[in-house]
Simulated scan of single mutants.
Amino acid sequence: MASVAGRGRAPLDTAVVQGFYDRMRAVAPAAYGAIERDRADDPTRPFAETACGRLVGSLDAAGLRALGMWAHHWCMRFYDDDTRVGVRLVGEIAGRRGLGWTADEVRWLLDRSHEAGPAAGHRFTLPLAAAAELPSGALPEGVPVDTVPADWRRLRAG
Score class of each variant (00 low, 15 high):
residue 1 M to V: 15
residue 4 V to S: 09
residue 6 G to K: 06
residue 6 G to P: 05
residue 9 R to D: 02
residue 9 R to K: 12
residue 12 L to K: 06
residue 16 V to T: 13
residue 16 V to E: 07
residue 20 F to M: 12
residue 26 A to Y: 08
residue 28 A to Y: 11
residue 29 P to A: 14
residue 30 A to S: 14
residue 32 Y to K: 13
residue 34 A to C: 11
residue 40 A to V: 08
residue 42 D to A: 08
residue 44 T to H: 08
residue 44 T to F: 03
residue 44 T to Y: 01
residue 45 R to K: 15
residue 45 R to P: 01
residue 47 F to A: 12
residue 47 F to Y: 15
residue 48 A to C: 06
residue 51 A to C: 10
residue 53 G to I: 02
residue 55 L to K: 05
residue 56 V to I: 11
residue 57 G to H: 06
residue 61 A to C: 10
residue 64 L to I: 09
residue 64 L to D: 01
residue 65 R to S: 01
residue 70 W to P: 00
residue 71 A to D: 04
residue 73 H to Q: 13
residue 75 C to H: 11
residue 75 C to P: 00
residue 78 F to G: 01
residue 81 D to L: 12
residue 81 D to E: 15
residue 86 G to K: 01
residue 91 G to R: 10
residue 94 A to P: 00
residue 96 R to S: 05
residue 101 W to M: 05
residue 114 H to A: 10
residue 116 A to T: 01
residue 118 P to S: 09
residue 120 A to M: 04
residue 121 G to C: 08
residue 128 L to I: 12
residue 129 A to H: 02
residue 132 A to R: 06
residue 132 A to M: 06
residue 135 P to A: 13
residue 136 S to Q: 13
residue 138 A to N: 09
residue 138 A to R: 07
residue 139 L to Q: 08
residue 144 P to C: 01
residue 146 D to M: 04
residue 147 T to Y: 11
residue 148 V to I: 04
residue 148 V to F: 06
residue 149 P to G: 05
residue 153 R to A: 15
residue 154 R to N: 12
residue 156 R to Q: 11
residue 158 G to H: 05
residue 158 G to F: 02
